[in-house]
Design a protein around this nucleic acid. Structure first.
Lengths: 199, 199
DNA sequence: ACCTGAACACCGTTCAAGT
DNA sequence: ACCTGAACACCGTTCAAGT
């Protein structure tokens, strides 16, 4: 019964889903509008009934990706609502795990393929939510004396930047073998985040 | 006298230079082999006499970019050879400045466009040198008691990751307006690096 | 050895036409 | 309103041919 719902159904979401699948199988460079259309079983020009252009489809894919990241972070920190320091560590590790599990999704989210992000309100809102969640954890840590008192948004940029930087360099193969042979990415992230709470 | 040296000259380097110029003017998505060839004044298939494929040209462009970054870092820290802490700050700010001055060069270096980096020895060597320079500064800071004693390579991943993460998030427009209205990227980097030396 | 031009498969986008 | 198929400009890559 769930077979071929579209053709006259929810093609828009089918295209987004097809895009995510191609991304996982062929990487960012393998993602084309024509392949997405073909995988959804429609002609190569059908997507233009639902998306202005390729950028617009990419916006939808990255928006969905940010929502997924938001959810994974939320689930990772939920069990520790009374222990901000554990929330910070769990959140950082979940971020790293998301990047490792969905490498090409992570790459398309942060590699500048989407060129005028401001034009896509749903995208802006999804990233705003994710950043807001980080700020909340930071603030809870500060209230608990686990992090230095400083403007929470600035501290959030610092901590998120730390995690994001290590994960990004790892994904790009920029971290030297002498390091990666001895430490996993999760370990490196964990060590780095601990330094924020050590002072 | 320096006009049209190639046609029968140093086409290989002319192509790399043309690529860097297109990158600066049209961004990563505007970089095509055919445009590069055209800008160098040769037919669209001429580049194949010097590069196996587009990936190979991109490898040459990113290699040259890493060499440039290496040089800018070297010049930034040179004046402070007797003050490791100042070297650290100056290096971090130079890294941020490089990214802001050569945005698309920085993006192509770290956005995963180059897909099998290991296949390009000159590229591997250029990135190794850059990382090595970071490790040296870290080590000098540790010897001077400015940074915690820890495996220098691990500390380098942490510090470089911190700077790289903030700069990357800024370039991707992921840092909230409430932060960027009040602080420049250089300021955010500076604040974050200071926290490493504060403990 | 280095470069050209035709050729091919693939791509994003537009548009007239169909339902 | 949603989808198709032809068309166009652009792209990466190959190959026979020229110098």
């Amino acid at each position: 019964m769930p077979a071929k719902k579209y053709h006259h159904g929810d093609l828009k979401n089918a295209l987004i889903q097809a895009g995510i699948e191609i991304l996982a199988k062929e990487g960012v460079s393998g993602l084309s509008l024509r392949k997405v259309a073909s995988r959804a079983g429609v002609s190569h020009s059908a997507p233009y009934s639902h998306f202005k252009d390729k950028q617009s489809l990419i916006a939808a894919i990255t928006t969905e990706s940010f929502r997924q990241l938001y959810e994974e972070l939320r689930e990772a920190i939920a069990p520790f609502s009374s222990d901000p320091k554990k929330q910070l560590t769990a959140g950082a590790l979940a971020y790293a795990q998301f990047a490792l599990d969905h490498t090409d999704m992570f790459k398309i989210m942060f590699s500048g393929v989407l060129e005028k992000e401001k034009d896509y309100p749903a995208y802006v809102e999804a990233t705003r939510q994710t950043f807001g969640q980080v700020v909340q954890v930071i603030q809870a840590c500060q209230d608990a004396g686990v992090l230095r008192p400083a403007p929470p948004e600035v501290m959030a940029v610092s901590v998120w930047g730390q995690v994001h930087g290590i994960v990004s360099l790892a994904l790009e193969g920029q971290i030297s073998h002498t390091v990666l042979d001895r430490h996993s990415v999760r370990e490196l992230v964990s060590l780095a985040v601990d330094q924020f709470t050590a002072a």
